[in-house]
Design a protein around this nucleic acid. Structure first.
Lengths: 183, 183
DNA sequence: ACACGACTAGACCGATCGGTCTAGCGATGA
DNA sequence: TCATCGCTAGACCGATCGGTCTAGTCGTGT
């Protein structure tokens, strides 16, 4: 990602929002950390903080999409792909300092009355699940099995991430495949 | 719960924090909704907002403990108990307006740098899992199976709640038993 | 050389934040 | 009757919030 002013803002905002939530981060903090003045923020994001949050959510959505494709692209079975995905996310979780929540939910759940945030969250979740369904079918699962498996994976990932965060331990993410496949 | 001033504060704070998170709710909003003046808040909670949040988390912890015991108390098998639990929580979710997140995590994850919040979250989660392990063993599961089942239930509950919130649909909670038992 | 548009820079604004402080109410016991 | 004390009541505080506005910088096309 090219380190333009705009991208620095998005990257910094995404990181901070994931740690502390939309309402837990002030513009001044984002500005100080990214080293960008306030005028630039409102040039690139005329609607201010909400615009920036939506852009940050879009960025992490793209990153997550890429990670999912990478994990399943190398795999020879659905189980392999899912296991790789959890290990990749565990590494990401460590990289973020073991404080971050599921990127999208933590950025966009802060303002439940904001219809844009609400809609976007739902869309992103649907997109992830559909993407995993696609990989599952490609790797030989029947459509029904693929849909059930994708939902199960998504739900377990969300919950496992919460537990990992509470315990500050990425192992909670790495052991999730047991839950899916050895239960 | 007796409707004393202190309890009105706890109850209101719990509801609002669940919807909007710790940083998404101002003291003035809590005070207005509950109809309590600021002086009373600082009389009952000398350390202000953080005290109140910990009390609210303790309250929802107790409620959740009660719900878990009720669900498994009526049950003749672990599967029955778990299914009842999900239905009870789906009803609760509807009652709260389909905006609320997992009570404890949303109240206490707002300030990841606050060690008290961090510790309390982890403790509450551990307590819930231990409680479910107890019920599972009582209902005939082996210790190993009970521990695996309890973790699976907890993780699926957390993730399913997130999905239910994103889609504003309590059915996402009601269908979780399929994931646990028909996968 | 000059004009113009994209972008940077930060002073400044009213509103709201969490928190403090003093005054007073009202039940209880001496 | 009056002193006491748990609690209510809300005015007030400095800090910080998200957002606006003007001035200036820089690169590019003419």
């Amino acid at each position: 990602m090219e380190r333009s002013t705009k991208n620095k803002l998005i990257w910094t905002a995404a990181k901070l929002f994931q740690e502390k939530g939309f309402n837990g981060v002030g513009l001044n903090e984002i500005l100080t950390v990214s080293g960008v003045p306030k005028g630039s923020l409102y040039h690139h994001f005329p609607n201010g903080k909400t615009d920036l949050a939506l852009a940050a959510a879009g960025f992490v959505h793209g990153e997550m999409t890429r990670i999912i494709d990478e994990a399943f692209g190398e795999a020879t079975s659905y189980r392999d792909g899912a296991t790789t995905l959890f290990h990749k996310l565990a590494k990401l979780f460590e990289l973020m300092g073991k404080h971050s929540a599921c990127p999208v939910s933590h950025i966009l759940f802060g303002e439940p009355e904001n219809a844009d945030f609400q809609k976007r969250t739902s869309e992103v979740f649907d997109a992830w699940i559909a993407q995993i369904v696609g990989h599952a079918e490609r790797l030989g699962e029947t459509p029904d099995a693929a849909r059930a498996a994708a939902r199960h994976l998504f739900v377990v990932l969300q919950g496992g991430w919460t537990l990992a965060r509470a315990r500050q331990d990425s192992y909670e993410l790495r052991r999730l495949p047991e839950l899916l496949f050895d239960g």
